[in-house]
Design a protein around this nucleic acid. Sequence first.
DNA 1: TTTATAGTTGACTATTTTAGTCGGTTTAAT
DNA 2: ATTAAACCGACTAAAATAGTCAACTATAAA
Lengths: 161, 161
Amino acid sequence: MRLTTKGRYAVTAMLDLAIHAGKGPVSLADISERQGISLSYLEQLFAKLRRNELVRSVRGPGGGYQLNREQQDIDVAQVIDAVNESVDATGCGHTGSCHDGNICLTHHLWCDLSSQIHDFLSQISLADLMARNDVRSVAERQERGHMASFEDSLISAKVTA
Amino acid sequence: MRLTTKGRYAVTAMLDLAIHAGKGPVSLADISERQGISLSYLEQLFAKLRRNELVRSVRGPGGGYQLNREQQDIDVAQVIDAVNESVDATGCGHTGSCHDGNICLTHHLWCDLSSQIHDFLSQISLADLMARNDVRSVAERQERGHMASFEDSLISAKVTA
DNA sequence: TTTATAGTTGACTATTTTAGTCGGTTTAAT
DNA sequence: ATTAAACCGACTAAAATAGTCAACTATAAA
């Protein structure tokens, strides 16, 4: 089972994209700053998200990324699958050749668990996440933080001028 | 979230212990051969299982390990927790300091998922696994395999004698 | 009482994955 | 033309996994 910061970063970034939708494309630099994820790492992740047609890109100045479908049509499992290439708890990748070409004692247990996790995550869309109170409040705090640092940069610009 | 061969090995080994209970202690060498897990690695895992009081050991010739509780009182989550020290899908270990000391956008999602997985695994005991058809049939096949290689060793002993 | 068996421990190593960097190239708006 | 952005590939550092190895201790059977 593969569920690490990689998948978490991807979901967080997609949610950031959803939150800032409607105001034109969102640059990875913005996401990087808001969510505290390395820009270069985001590039890697979005290459995969794009190959999986979850986002579309706009190049050039003012460009960035946008969701490629409606928010209710993108679920968390799709995002994690896109960057991890599998949400699989078995060691054999469901082939059943866990032990000398035969299935191991616990093969079916891990299959069951895998589908359990996948079901859970595939029932949660970006729209669902957007509606959650905890997400809304964190997004609001991040907006304020962004504004503050924007004002800071104005002030420091004034000082250095 | 930490769910790799480490946890899978531990559960498989515990199930092997359960299957061969009642005929005295089971040696790690036996488990190693039957389940195809490196002996030295099993030693590491069982050190943790013992510290968590899931198994007890008997030293000396004919010694080995035994379950320390009834089969229905040991669940899969306990075994994985024992070797992995956490079944946690959050990156911050539930502290909520995922991003600059604040919780990240998706913190609660991972908390929910963690408890979902933990619930699922904690509802499955070794006794439950023993009762499954797929487990019984694999165990039977392994028993036959073991017998065959036992007979082989008798034959080769005769030949070399 | 010797001896072989098996657990116990700690240090060490190889491999893989994750996470991230760097340098460059295209592309498109100003 | 300049610049802001996506795009791309190769590279690297750190961590975790999956082991290995050697020395040691306890104990039951011969």
